[in-house]
Structure formats: structure tokens, C-alpha cells
């Protein structure tokens, strides 16, 4: 993994974090905002798993286990928030 690429990932993660924080500053979140926050978290998690944990070039089984954890956790949270809005 090139160090320049790692630096780009780091900056992207920092920007995404500030974006999430700014969304939180708006107060009670609408459904769209909740989805946006979860999508941002999914992208951040994906980048950490692929490029910091270095699972990008690891057999699908291992990548799938960690990515599956990320997506399942975020999906369950989304379901719980959706049920709360209903």
C-alpha cells in the first residue's frame, strides 16, 4: 500500500468524521439524515477494513467476515431507527 494512498484515506476519513459531526449539530435527525450518517459510517468502515486493516487483497472469506460485521451492524441500527420513526 503506497503511503500517499494511505494519506488520502486518512484525510477522507477525517473529512467524513467532521461531516458526521456537523450533521449531528443540526439537532433531531430526519430519516434522510440518519441514512446519510449510516452510509458515511459504512464508507468509513469500508476504508478502514480495506486499506488500514489491509484486507483488500485477502481471501474473500476474511474480508467478508469483517465487512459482513460492518454491514450487518449498520443494517440492524437502521432497522431499529426505522421502527422508531414508524
Amino acid at each position: 500500500m503506497g503511503v500517499h494512498f494511505l494519506n488520502v484515506i486518512w484525510v477522507a476519513l477525517m473529512v467524513a468524521t467532521v461531516l458526521t459531526w456537523l450533521i449531528g449539530k443540526t439537532g433531531e435527525l430526519s430519516t434522510a439524515m440518519v441514512v446519510a450518517v449510516l452510509v458515511i459510517s459504512a464508507v468509513k468502515g469500508w476504508l478502514i477494513i480495506y486499506d488500514f486493516m489491509a484486507l483488500r487483497r485477502v481471501r474473500l472469506l476474511w474480508r467478508g467476515l469483517v465487512l459482513g460485521w460492518l454491514l450487518l451492524t449498520l443494517s440492524i441500527i437502521l432497522l431499529a431507527y426505522w421502527l422508531g420513526i414508524k
Partner: peptide, 21 residues
């Protein structure tokens, strides 16, 4: 790998507890 896991968990904990209300 362990340190990245600690980071990964916080990536969900932060929005869940501090942001999403």
C-alpha cells in the same frame, strides 16, 4: 490489526451514541 479493530468499532459507536437522535 487489533488497533484498527478498536478504531473500526468507534466508527459506529460515535454516530450511534453521539449523533443519531
Amino acid at each position: 490489526s487489533y488497533w484498527h479493530m478498536v478504531d473500526l468499532v468507534w466508527i459506529i459507536l460515535f454516530p450511534l451514541v453521539y449523533v443519531m437522535r
